[in-house]
Design a protein around this nucleic acid. Structure first.
Length: 779
DNA sequence: TTAGGGTTTG
């Protein structure tokens, strides 16, 4: 039961607060102050509990003033909304006495002729109303209210593993993921919040409100929320929460030991010792069960190719174009790399120009896109922000010798991308403010030196970076994996020699291409030695859409080596999807060991399946067998990796050839084996880069052709693994630190081989790096 | 209604 009513025993004394005075119906008028008044009457009529258009519960009763039965106007309609409606409907009996306080008086458009008042009363928890109910006047009062001075209702909180479709519940949860409120495509702000609790069940809630303030004030993963009256629905086989009428929330800092102060926009809410205890217990549970180490960073600690959350102060903003907007922010620390400045018209720049100039070395430009623009425009200069999932990108302009770092807040909201304004009471803001003030204290002439000094003592990053670079200048950042007995050859000698030959060199990496590291990943066919770009997901999507028109052939369902399941999607498109689960040794396996073939799936569905199952092979039906799709699509997906076949060298064989592998007891579904039985020449992921190497005698370009050995990162995983991308970027920053002079670059020891490439016109010598790897303490 | 976390890269 969501509300447990308390029964107060009393004689003639009532539990009514002493400041409340009875109001006669005759004296009741719209527009008067009724804060300290109550209306008392007997329930003579009640209507069934209903829901309003917006889902709010609604309950209507008629109260008759029993003390003034003879007067002309002796009854009034009471309209009860939300949770209170539900509670009243459950306990109301005709003949009971109701006392209503904290009501709103609304005048009716037309006069009543049935003895009822020309106004009605509106009450709800949100309005701070209280209703006292008793079987007979002045004794045995039940009451429930949201006012602090009366005994509050006892809410029941449902654990996340006990949620049922179609119910409205109260719950507590620890925030596992959230999207800060953003402007939805409809009419409201939206915030998506995923909660967990000690039942280890996850609940994702879609919260909407036209009022930004009414959404939970979540600032961090690990915050604790209390939701009242959240509606539970089933969606895609999982429970989801969605705001219903009367939704209210409290948010608490999730840090163990921090003050338990709720963040809320509700003016009235219940919060007592028991609630405090719940929050403290959840904090302790979360401390060992939730990873709250979010990707936060100071500007002094940013790395290229990173996504991170930044707590900062807004010092300037400017319109850029229709789809992007510039925010100029600082956090008092200095980014160790050159940062970009987004060109904007002076007239479009809002903010204190003098301050912006003073802080020019500390302020960074963040370009926000698309859906974030509107919110960004509304931000006030001087406000404190947390910007979630900022992307640091390394780039170089045509007129720059060294690369710089760009900060982007890309469009969309995945990964919780967004902007949240933090109140000054936020502990992180307090800390930031104190730090910014200490920076401000410096003479504006000396801002730069002051900040460098602060950073050296306050933040380890810059000092660590310097030490790291010093180490790199002495030792080689790469090591040889073979031929250690060979002695070094100067680049000039190599350039003047004929190919083919092999050399050991000691050189510096002056430049490399591509700068966008993900562009270095290609697919290589070892049979025809061709290289090709990795198809993008649009190519795959296009092929899937093309094959969706081919209906699954029922005659190919349920064979001796696979079991088939077909269903139709519930959406408007009514797509048919067929999955063939391959059996092994005639038995179905656990999902993590299972190879499945899918017909009619979308990109997203296939991607999800590949997370859950060992292997996914997209297929389509022909008259007598299943066949692979076009080889521009991956023929096999395993975990994060998409495997492609060489169009030139593959001769696809019937899919039923897979049954031979399925019959083996020890099948581990190796991509090479699958490719082989399907007649596919497997393409391998490889890094291809051009290194410009220099020493005191000359410079040459050498190619790096690396599956895994040089970076110690498999090329097959880099495109789908952000962590590895960061790792690779950091490695490149060590080998070739951005913004440094040649003399300050570290040494690389490498093996290179020279080889001839002849075409009709001429012979050219190329160089390739081999038997070299990045030093262990660099990666 | 909106979004429905989960392939982030202008």
């Amino acid at each position: 039961m969501p509300v447990q009513l308390l029964k107060i025993k009393g004689e003639s004394e009532t539990p009514l607060p002493s400041h409340l005075q009875k109001e006669n119906l005759q004296d009741l008028q719209e527009g008067c102050d009724h804060t300290n008044k109550y209306i008392q009457g007997i329930v003579t009529l009640s209507y069934p509990l209903t829901k309003l258009g917006d889902g709010t519960d609604f309950f209507k009763i008629v109260l008759q003033d029993s003390d003034n039965l003879s007067s002309k106007i002796n009854s009034i309609n009471v309209l009860i909304y939300g949770k209170m409606a539900e509670d009243c409907a459950r306990i109301t009996r005709h003949g009971e006495t109701f006392i209503v306080a904290g009501f709103k008086v609304i005048k009716l458009p037309t006069a009543k002729e049935d003895g009822r008042h020309g106004c009605h009363l509106e009450v709800s928890e949100e309005a701070g109303s209280t209703i006292y109910v008793s079987g007979c006047p002045t004794s045995n009062f039940f009451f429930f209210s949201q006012n602090a001075y009366s005994v509050a209702p006892k809410y029941v909180y449902t654990p996340l593993n006990h949620l049922k479709d179609g119910t409205i519940v109260n719950l507590y949860g620890v925030v596992k993921f959230f999207k800060p409120p953003y402007i939805s495509k409809g009419t409201d702000y939206c915030s998506v919040v995923t909660l967990v609790d000690p039942s280890d069940v996850k609940l994702t809630c879609s919260l909407f409100s036209g009022n930004l303030d009414a959404l939970p004030k979540i600032y961090k993963v690990g915050d604790i929320v209390r939701f009242h009256r959240i509606k539970i629905r089933e969606y895609n086989g999982q429970m989801q929460g969605i705001t219903s009428g009367g939704f209210a929330s409290l948010t608490f800092d999730g840090t163990v030991g921090a003050p338990v102060v709720p963040r809320t926009s509700s003016k009235v809410y219940t919060f007592m010792d028991e609630e405090q205890k719940t929050v403290e217990e959840l904090r302790i549970w979360a401390a060992s069960n939730i990873s709250i180490s979010g990707p936060a960073a100071k500007l002094s600690g940013v790395q290229p190719m990173q996504f991170f959350d930044l707590t900062c102060q807004l010092v300037g903003k400017a319109k850029v174009d229709g789809s992007s907007f510039l925010l100029k922010v600082w956090d008092g620390t200095r980014c160790p790399y050159p940062t970009w400045k987004v060109p904007v018209e002076a007239k479009d720049l809002e903010g204190d120009k003098v301050l912006l100039h003073q802080l020019r070395d500390l302020v960074v430009d963040i370009l926000v896109y698309d859906n974030h623009v509107q919110l960004a425009e509304s931000l006030k200069i001087g406000s404190f922000l947390r910007i979630y999932s900022i992307h640091t990108k390394q780039a170089s302009a045509d007129n720059e010798d060294v690369s710089h770092i760009e900060f982007h807040l890309h469009g969309g909201t995945c990964y919780g991308r967004g902007i949240g304004a933090l109140p000054e009471s936020n502990p992180d803001v307090k800390e930031l403010k104190a730090f910014l003030e200490s920076v401000h204290l410096a003479d504006s002439q000396n801002v730069e030196s002051m900040c460098s000094m602060d950073m050296d003592s306050t933040f380890g990053n810059v000092t660590d970076l310097e030490l790291h670079l010093q180490r790199c200048q002495q030792l080689s950042v790469t090591v040889l994996t073979d031929h250690q007995d060979l002695s070094n050859t100067e680049l000039k000698t190599i350039i003047n020699s004929t190919a083919p030959q092999q050399y050991r060199i000691r050189a510096k990496l002056r430049a490399y291409k591509p700068q966008k590291l993900h562009q270095s990943v290609k697919l290589h066919c070892s049979r025809c030695n061709s290289l090709q770009e990795v198809p993008d997901r649009d190519d795959f999507d296009f092929i899937l859409r093309g094959s969706a028109g081919t209906a699954s052939n029922p005659e190919l369902h349920n064979t001796s080596w696979y079991e088939s399941v077909t269903w139709t999607t519930q959406d408007q498109k009514q797509r048919e999807i067929t999955i063939h689960f391959v059996k092994r040794d005639e038995m179905l396996q656990n999902p993590e060991d299972t190879l499945l073939m899918i017909e009619g799936g979308t990109l997203k569905e296939i991607w999800k399946l590949s997370r859950r199952f060992k292997c996914v092979i997209p297929v389509r039906s022909t008259e007598d067998d299943l066949e692979l799709l076009d080889l521009s699509a991956p023929f096999l997906l395993q975990g994060n990796v998409k495997y492609y076949g060489c169009k030139q060298c593959s001769t696809p064989k019937p899919v039923k050839n897979l049954s031979s592998l399925a019959a083996e007891q020890q099948t581990s579904w190796e991509p090479t084996e699958i490719a082989q039985v399907l007649g596919i020449e497997l393409l391998q992921y490889v890094f291809i880069m051009k290194f410009t190497l220099v020493d005191e005698t000359g410079a040459l370009n050498a190619y790096l052709f690396d599956y895994e050995k040089f970076f110690q990162i498999p090329a097959s995983e880099i495109l789908t693994n952000n962590f590895l991308q960061q790792k690779m970027q950091m490695t490149m920053n060590t080998l070739c630190p951005p913004g440094r002079k040649l003399g300050d670059l570290p040494w690389l020891e490498c093996f290179i081989r020279s080889y001839n490439v002849r075409d009709v016109m001429k012979n050219q010598v190329y160089y390739q790096i081999f038997d070299t790897t990045v030093a262990e303490d660099v990666v």
